[in-house]
Amino acid sequence: MNKRKYIIDTDTASDDAVALVMALRSDLDILAITCTAGNLSLAKTTRNARLSCVFADTYAPPIYAGSDRPLVKTLVVGENVHGSDGLGDMFYPEPDVQLEQEHAVDAMLEIARTHKDVGLITLGPLTNVAMAILLDPIAMRNITHIIAMGGQYRMTNGCTANAEFNIWVDGEAAKIVLESGIPITMVPLDVCYGEAEITAEDRAYLKSLKSARGDFFVDCNRHLLAYNQRSYNKDIISMPDPTAMAVAIDPSIVTSYVDVYTQIELRSPLSYGQLIYDFYNRHKKAANVRLITKIDAQKFKTLVFKTAE
C-alpha cells in the first residue's frame, strides 16, 4: 500500500515538536516540513523543526524556512507560552540537520505542481499556505486536503474571547485558505482540551519509559505546563498540534464532525480572527470546512505514548 503523503507547515514550538516526532514515526510519508513565524520567530521555528527530526530519529524530510511575518498584521509571538526557545528553555544543542535554501512557499508549490496525491497538515498560522495559494492557485488545487489545527467553536478565551491563536495571528491568510476551495479539516481547540489533556499521571508514564522521546515530550513542554497551571489553573499539558497530527495519522480518532460553511471576521477589533460557523446553513453555501467536534481521546493518548517508546 502506498503511504499517504503530506507536507507539514509548522511554527515549531513545544507541541508542534511532539506532532512532528509523531509524524516522522508514523506510516505517513512526510515530503517536506515548511516553517512559518507564529509561536516564535521564523529563525526559532526552523531550528525547532530541525531539532524535532533529531528526536524523531527516523528520517529528516527537507525543511524550508518561509514567512517571517503575517501577510498584513504585525507578528505576535508566544514565548510566554512555550519558553524563549519555544522548547521549554531546555536549550537543546544545535541539531545536525540542514535547512534548505529554497523558500518554503516555492517548495510547497513545487510539490503541488508535481503531485496530485499530497495533503497538507498545518500546525501554525496559515501565512505560507495563503502565499502559495495567491502565487499559484491552480497548482494548489492539487493539494488533496488540509488538516489544520485552528479555531474554537464553543470554547472561549483560547487567545482572544472567540479567536484561537493560529487563526488570530494571521486572519487574512486564514481567509484566503478558507476561500481557496481546498477541502479543510479543522481541528479546533475544543477537542484538544478535556480528555485529551496530558495529565500528571500521563507525564509520569512518559518519564517512566526512560526514553529520549518520552523525556523530550515532557521536558520541552514544561513552559506550556506552567502556562496552563497559572493561566487555566490546570495541571496539564495541552496538545493542540499533536491532536491535529493524530487526526492525520489515524483518521479513526475522529468520532464526530460537522461539515459547515465557515467564514472569518477580520474587520472587528473585538472579534478579529473569529471563525464564523454557519451551523444552521443560513447562507445555503457548500461546506468548506469539516469541523472536528469529538475525538477518541484515549486513542490519541495511546498514539502519543507509543511514539514516545
Partner: peptide, 17 residues
C-alpha cells in the same frame, strides 16, 4: 464586525499571548 456585528463578546480572561 462585518460578520460579528451584534455579537456579545464574553471575556473571562486572556489566552495564550
Amino acid at each position: 464586525g462585518s460578520l460579528s456585528y451584534g455579537q456579545t463578546v464574553v471575556n473571562t480572561k486572556g489566552g495564550t499571548v
